[in-house]
Design a protein around this nucleic acid. Structure first.
Lengths: 344, 344
DNA sequence: TTGTATGCGTTATCAT
DNA sequence: ATGATAACGCATACAA
């Protein structure tokens, strides 16, 4: 009892459904997508039955070319295995799901050249929005990126930058400076006087802002930043930097501030592997409050960034017709845990 | 000096490029995509110049409808913020990049009904492949999923399941049973005699296999599994289960085997929060070897699953024209760390 | 309300 | 080698 009108090869098309239901293409189209137009109940039922029977699913590509707009939003991250980005992505995915959008993801591997290429490739999808996380806004490749982004904007797409935006592009910002300053102040208040910062290379805004903020807060409250080591944003970079650091003379009671939790956690491991104790001996603090921070011992002192929320907001920022640059900044909060015990 | 042929609104189309270069649509198409056909050098240059000038990027949707095949591969995971899945996704993304494909990602939130819906939605993209991670192959919703997957296969798409496949669908399997058995044996060898397993609910193959394998290996070597608690696959589930466990009488020297590292790490935290010590007092072991396991103290004993590789293989399994079910299984390796000190 | 016909940006078949 | 032109699957303005 096979159905003669059912296609053997390939997916069922709207055409198939219409034929099966004995209606026109237009009618089938109207019932199967959210058209405002009305269609008689009897027809509607027949079409729906036919669609169900044939397992019809609209071809989104065809729909996109016909409509001139896709149901896609693209997300660009440095490394999806990094908890920072994966939590971010989680929020983006949730927002996209709510909006009936599909998210395509691309990995830059922190390579600016790659990033430009990817934006160009993603542009081919004609996504409604493009969310960029952790891209440098300065440096030699920034101009190439910018022109690619402009091209995307020019064709009607929305660009959202996580972190400080460039010019008029939308962005959902995090108060890295303020958060880091609050952390610095709090740690000085806890009795710390000497700190070493493990940061990413200069020119990366997020890193620069956190370094500057921390230094300000810490020194204003009586501390002193002894050194700023350039590492990167990865766990291994944090480990290596701290390891190198500990070759030298690092007095007990020194605080290591990692530019991100991932870096700080790497540093913690290096401290332990160097035979020193995290906390009472060498204190460590981070930034972001990734989930792991709860489960390591001692717990990692940090600044909580609502990453999932951040991603969610970014998605919605990409969807809003009008961009209101004056959105309230995300609430950042210092979280003190065992890695920085009071020192009085 | 604005270019009259440059579109003010919307993206440049192939048509625009052809006109700008003074050639036909067909010629422009031939030079701008990997066509086998030859076109005169002079024309080629003009077209490329025009494309560059206009910032042209092929509309992938249009390309897909015309070609009848997309450059998309879809990935379905339970939770992208979970390190297990994010590492997996990382491998998938790398493979996709190498193959010139774009990956769209969807989150099931471990909801079978949602999973079915998502597969259906993703089907609309007509992706070349569909990679499913952590979907239950049994239970009431499994049939709905299967029919949706069949529909996808029927229209020429490749389905790849991570873990045990159903029937003829492609799959890249992990030897959960064997790995868990090896772990159990090793731990018994280390002197452990009593174990409690914190697993997911019954009917989830991955969990069932690990429980069975561990039990076999552990008991064959002289140990005894005292209890199997049903929790879930999340950190919080592991925490709650272990916490509940510790309300009762858990003698020192007991081993808790978490069905996954994430679960085990939750359990570790619960153990500590209950005032017990991880390692010498209560031992803990997991499965997967997620990155975090390196940085917590004591280090987590586990079975290493090359997750990134797994994702990479899955992607390629989706691309291969012929599916060779006899691929060598991924190498699993027991990794003993401080959370299960020798006990002799 | 329903159907017809045209267009969306590309590819590919067919002449030239 | 190059250029018309007919698909591709769907949406929609327009006609009935």
């Amino acid at each position: 009892m096979s159905n003669p009108s059912a296609p053997t090869r390939g997916a069922a098309t709207l055409h198939d459904v219409a034929r099966e239901a004995g209606v026109s293409l237009a009618t089938a189209s109207r019932v199967l997508n959210g058209s405002t137009r009305k269609v008689a109940e009897s027809y509607r039922e027949r079409v729906e039955a036919a669609a169900e029977k044939l397992g019809y699913t609209a071809n989104l590509s065809a729909q996109a070319t016909a409509r001139g707009t896709s149901a896609i939003v693209a997300l660009l991250v440095a490394d999806i295995a990094d908890p920072y980005f994966s939590q971010l992505a989680s929020g983006v995915a949730r927002g996209a799901d709510e909006a009936g959008l599909v998210v395509t993801i691309a990995i830059t591997e922190r390579d600016p050249q790659r990033e430009v290429k990817l934006v160009r490739a993603l542009r081919g999808q004609r996504p409604r929005g493009l969310i960029l996380a952790a891209s440098r806004t300065e440096g030699p490749d920034a101009v190439g990126l910018q022109s690619e982004l402009d091209a995307f904007s020019g064709m009607g797409g929305r660009v959202v930058m996580l972190g400080p935006g460039t010019g008029s592009t939308r962005s959902v910002a995090v108060d890295n400076h303020g958060g880091a300053a609050a952390l610095g102040t709090e740690l000085a208040r806890l009795g710390y006087r000497d700190a070493i910062v493990v940061a990413a290379s200069e020119g990366i805004r997020t890193s620069d802002d956190r370094v500057a903020g921390f230094t300000e807060g810490f020194e204003a409250a009586g501390g002193k930043v002894r050194d700023v080591r350039r590492a990167g944003f990865t766990r291994d970079a944090g480990y290596a930097a701290a390891q190198d650091l500990l070759q030298g003379d690092v007095p007990g009671g020194t605080l290591i501030f990692g530019i991100s939790d991932v870096v700080a956690i790497g540093a913690m491991s290096a401290v332990r592997d160097a035979g020193r104790q995290v906390g009472a001996d060498i204190a460590v603090a981070g930034f972001d409050d990734i989930a792991t921070g709860r489960d390591i011992r001692p717990g990692l002192t940090t600044v909580r960034v609502p990453l999932e929320d951040l991603g969610y907001r970014a998605l919605n920022a990409a969807l809003e017709p009008e961009w209101d640059a004056s959105e309230p900044p995300l609430h950042l909060e210092v979280v003190v845990r065992g890695s920085t015990p009071p020192r009085d």
